[in-house]
């Protein structure tokens, strides 16, 4: 039996880049952290809160997201949304991912032609 920890590390590595793409895909409209976490969970995208919240801040500092505080509710919430640059970054990442996905699918089909 292959070491579970090593396998888990491989899966983490595999997911690392795609999680950013998943997060960006949901931010065409403003969302706050916890709601985004739930939305992603509903789509079977497992992302820990301690990964998402710092990621949102990092993406904001990189200019990909913009944020604003909503103070109209009972408690204030920080809403994140794609910035203008963020929309462009997201579109290019999406295109790259789809191309990559096609190539990888071809590779995997060649590996198992009857699969």
């Amino acid at each position: 039996m292959y070491d579970d920890q090593i396998l888990s590390n491989f899966i983490t590595e595999l997911n690392r880049g795609t999680l950013t793409l998943c997060v960006l895909s949901q931010l065409r409209t403003p969302q706050y952290g916890y709601a985004l976490l739930q939305t992603l969970a509903e789509q079977q995208i497992v992302l820990e809160a301690n990964t998402l919240y710092p990621m949102l801040r990092r993406l904001e500092s990189q200019g990909v997201l913009k944020s604003s505080w909503d103070t109209t509710e009972s408690r204030p919430r920080k809403f994140y949304q794609l910035s203008e640059d963020g929309v462009m970054v997201y579109e290019r990442l999406k295109r790259h991912w789809l191309e990559q996905h096609t190539h990888i699918q071809t590779l995997l089909k060649e590996e198992h032609p009857h699969g």
């Binding site: 706050y32 952290g33 916890y34 709601a35 809160a49 919240y53 408690r75 204030p76 919430r77 920080k78």
Partner: peptide, 13 residues
């Protein structure tokens, strides 16, 4: 900034 943000997120959670 992080304090304010974490407070809001944890209270939501």
């Amino acid at each position: 900034d992080v304090q304010q943000e974490l407070e809001a997120n944890i209270l939501d959670m």
